[in-house]
Design a protein around this nucleic acid. Structure first.
Lengths: 229, 229
DNA sequence: CCAAAAGTGTTTATGATACACCCATGT
DNA sequence: ACATGGGTGTATCATAAACACTTTTGG
């Protein structure tokens, strides 16, 4: 017996809000739509969920197909189901957000899309469907969660400097942070490991490179420690 | 053109995790299923989303139909879409959680359900589908969010005493709180209004009744204030 | 008059904030 | 040598935590 035999079903899609930090601050990855509806408009990467795949798998598949990105940090955001959100009919969309290191994210536009490109969150073009609302929800989630979860590291390469990390937080929280206080606090958590390497090739004193100790984070988390910035 | 014309679609449901504080601590409202699958098992109230209703509307409708509850605090939790979560086939469920004042929640079992009743979260019976996992996710969300959002008030009648409020937090956070510190902190936020009334009929000094000032909360929130406990 | 919860301040400890200069490197 | 960001410590302030007794009411 089918769950609802003759019962009509909404279509189900996933959409991905991919964030990175660029020169213009926080940026989102958008694709230019090739087909109707909203052909020519910018939109979030996403598409229909297959019958035999989990939701997160669908999000990862669509992301790879449409942008070339794989192995990114990905988390479910919210499910958007307003009855009029798609002009073609009833379409419910499970939205995810992803965090990537812009410098190491090599993009490859799909045949379905005219283009793939980064756009400053502060100056988005007109978006298809309710995608502006979805980006706004993702942005709010990121701003809230970055303070109590180790999300900042997902926007950086595996080895990074404290100044790079501080910039991540300054961009997301949209406020200047004190360098000494920031460094003291983040190092005091004991989650950063000094790799012993230095970043050479910069026209000033070579900064130390750190990495985030995921194993230790999970350990401390179990022991009741909570990340806080 | 239909969004996916010949493309098969998962079925879409909503499920509600309704919390209240009872004598056994945190409790969840469950219905005893009348029909297969899982006939006789306890399950979350919920059901299929109609083509012309929003997701939250569907959750409220199912909640009223199956338990009689209306006008509750309701928030989207997470969407569960594991391919094997329903033995009948592919069913994706958008889960919501609700908070109600147990004393004022008058229940009415639907014809579809053999029974509706409260169950201690600490000692749940076996649940249908992946409902145990959904309850766990809702519980975690509640524990996390109650500290930075004014959710506690949703579990009390409009007029309440500070001791009642403290108990809410103690139950949800599962830790004892200092009475004097609790009262100082919660009153300092300026969100509670002394109604001037006393709760009579108790075998001890009559406590003052307060109410939560929602208008003022929204005001302060806009001004950058953030609830914290 | 007894039981039961209401109500009320102060001290101490901890964590947050503010703040300025010298150092190392590449050009 | 100069421009650029890297790296470091202390004093002050604000918030959190610990803690015990008197008051009021109903039975």
């Amino acid at each position: 017996m089918s769950p609802d035999h003759d019962h009509p079903r909404p279509a189900l899609t996933v959409d991905c809000v991919v964030f990175a930090i660029g020169d213009d601050g926080l940026e989102v990855l958008l694709i230019e739509r090739d087909h109707e509806p909203f052909a020519g408009s910018w939109a979030l990467p996403g598409g229909f969920v297959e019958m035999d795949e989990n939701l997160e798998s669908a999000a990862r598949r669509e992301l790879e197909e449409e942008t070339g990105l794989t192995d990114v940090f990905l988390e479910q955001l919210y499910t958007f189901g307003a009855t009029d959100r798609d002009p073609r009919g009833r379409v419910v969309s499970v939205a995810y957000y992803a965090l990537v290191d812009r410098a190491h994210a090599h993009l490859a536009a799909d045949s379905d899309a005219a283009a793939v490109d980064w756009h400053s969150v502060a100056a988005l073009p007109g978006l298809a469907f309710d995608h502006r609302e979805i980006v706004a929800a993702a942005h709010e989630r990121l701003r809230g969660k970055v303070r109590y979860a180790p999300l900042g590291f997902e926007l950086l390469p595996r080895h990074f400097t404290l100044t790079q990390l501080q910039r991540i937080y300054e961009v997301i929280l949209d406020s200047a942070l004190d360098k000494r206080n920031f460094r003291r606090k983040i190092l005091a958590m004991g989650l950063l490991v000094d790799t012993g390497k230095l970043q050479r090739g910069v026209a000033h004193r070579a900064p130390r490179l750190y990495r985030f100790d995921r194993r230790r984070y999970k350990q401390l988390e179990r022991d009741g420690f909570s990340f806080w910035l």
